[in-house]
């Protein structure tokens, strides 16, 4: 469903992605783990076109979605096609990025109304169902600043789901949360995974990767150094760098 081929990205002279390739099938839950600064978030942001890669290709359902270098200049798919692609791939950010001037309900219904052109009543009905699903039915009229971090992130997930996306990208969704609030967000994500949502999750939560992921990708210094089932990666990794990383993470926990 999402295929990334040889993705490269530099910020100035710093090469953050050095040819990353991965493929996620419909219904698959892929997690990307690795040390800070290994390029995990950049990879995710490139997939959602928030950053533009310098080389390589991104395909969504077989269609090329990123820019390509043709005859000496960058050629991008039409703006509408990019907006459509983004509306089909939900993104959840580390810092939630809820819209501060809107209530929880408005945060969820605005994109369906303005992007999908849904009637307001229908959007509201869907939003209420989603809010109940993430356990925040009573917060519809609250403003984001009145919520805890965990509640904000659950609203952000509901907001993304309201677009009925075919896949969801999570960029360290629990990293900005107090430890006691991590569980409630992971629970929602697990339920989503069990319902068959295609997910790419950048995370430091090794237990989530172990319990929920179909595939674990290990990134280090801008490369995917190995990937496999959680079983293989966590019990019998091939690469020494993976072992070192896991040892450090497990020591911390």
């Amino acid at each position: 469903m999402i295929r990334v081929e040889g993705l490269e990205k530099s910020f100035g002279r710093l090469k953050v992605l050095k040819g990353v390739t991965l493929e996620v099938e419909p219904g698959e839950v892929a997690t990307i783990i690795g040390p800070s600064g290994s390029g995990k978030s950049t990879l995710l942001r490139c997939i959602n076109l928030l950053e533009e890669a310098d080389a390589g290709a991104i395909y969504f359902e077989g269609e090329r979605v990123d820019r390509r270098w043709v005859n000496g200049q960058w050629t991008r798919p039409p703006e509408r096609a990019i907006d459509l692609y983004r509306s089909q791939v939900g993104m959840v950010f580390q810092n939630f990025n809820l819209f501060g001037h809107w209530t929880v309900l408005e945060n969820i219904i605005m994109a369906p109304i303005h992007v999908l052109k849904k009637p307001r009543a229908e959007a509201v009905a869907v939003a209420k169902v989603l809010l109940a699903k993430v356990g925040l039915a009573d917060k519809a009229d609250a403003y984001p600043h009145q919520l805890s971090g965990g509640q904000k992130q659950r609203v952000a997930i509901a907001r993304a789901l309201a677009m009925e996306p075919k896949a969801m990208l999570f960029d360290e969704p629990t990293s900005a949360l107090d430890p006691e609030l991590v569980g409630e967000v992971l629970t929602v994500m697990k339920r989503l995974a069990n319902e068959g949502m295609t997910m790419i999750v950048v995370t430091h939560e090794m237990n989530f990767a172990k319990d929920v992921a179909d595939t674990v990708y290990v990134m280090d210094e801008g490369e995917i150094i190995e990937h496999g089932t959680p079983d293989t990666i966590f019990t019998n990794p091939v690469k020494e760098r993976t072992r070192t990383f896991l040892r450090q993470v497990l020591l911390r926990e």
Binding site: D83, F93, N97, V115
Partner: peptide, 24 residues
């Protein structure tokens, strides 16, 4: 992040400016 969240939901650049950025 406000702009990025809006764009990731499929809002066009103009919608993002009009609905999300300018009001705030």
């Amino acid at each position: 992040g406000q702009t990025e969240a809006a764009r990731s939901l499929g809002f066009s650049p103009a919608q993002t400016m009009r609905l999300v950025v300018l009001p705030q």
